[in-house]
Amino acid sequence: MIETLKKYIRPDVFPTPFCPGCGHGILMQALLRAIDELKLDIDKMVFLSGIGCAAWIPSPHFAADTMHTTHGRPITFATGIKLVNPKLKVVVISGDGDLSAIGGNHLIHAARRNIEMTVICANNSIYGMTGGQVAPTTPTGAKSATTPQGNPERDFDLCKLVKGAGADYVARGTVYHMRELIKYLKTALQHKGFSFVDVISPCYTQFGRRNQNTCGGSASSAIMNLKTAVSKTPQDGEILTGEF
C-alpha cells in the first residue's frame, strides 16, 4: 500500500522533519490514503499551510502544488486561489494555533462565506514548534511552557466554533482511529462547500512530556492513550469524535 502512496510524495525529502512518534506523520498518511481511495488527481489540487509543525505535512512532502504561507493566513491565500481558479481543489492543512488563534478570524469568516475548501486542523493542543506555549486548544489544567502550574482557562471546541460560524461538514477524528479518520477526510474532500476536520494528533515533545498523567511516558503511549480518550458521550476530559 505504501508503494502506491509513493506517487503522491517526494521521496527525496524523506525522512520527515517531525519528532519520532508525532501524530502529524500519521495524519499525512491518512490524507494520502483518502486521496488515493477517491482517485483524485493530485495535480489538480493545491495544498496550503501556515506556520508551525503541522504546516510541514503538505510542504514539501506532497508531489503537488503546495504553498507555505505566512502565520495564520493559509485560508486567505486559499480563498484567493479558489477565486482565481475555481476548478482547483483547495485543501488547507495547518495547526490548531495557526488556524484558531493567529488565523481564527479567517477560519470563522471562511466558514460563514461557505467557500468551497477543505480545512484540516492538526490539533496537538499546544504551540509545538515555538517551544510549547499555551494555545487556545490547551485543555484546562494542562501544563505548558507558559502555564507550568496548569492552564487556568478553558479551551476552544473548534468543531462547535466552525459549525456555529456556518460550515456544512464538520468532523473530529484522532490519529489512533485511522479508518474512521480516512472516512471523514474522504467525505470532507468530496463536500461541496466549506468542510472542516479537527484531527487530534498528540505532540509528545512539547505537550506529552509535561502532561505524563494523561499522555503516559512515551510518544507511542500518547498515541495509544487516544484509544480510550474518545467517546460519543464525553465525560470530563474525554474527546467527542464523529461527524457533526
Binding site: M1, I9, T16, G23, Q29, V175
Partner: peptide, 15 residues
C-alpha cells in the same frame, strides 16, 4: 491487520 503500516508516522512500514 495492517495496523503498523497505517499508524507509521514515517511511511516506513510496508505489509
Amino acid at each position: 491487520c495492517m495496523e503498523c503500516e497505517l499508524h507509521c508516522p514515517d511511511l516506513a512500514i510496508e505489509v
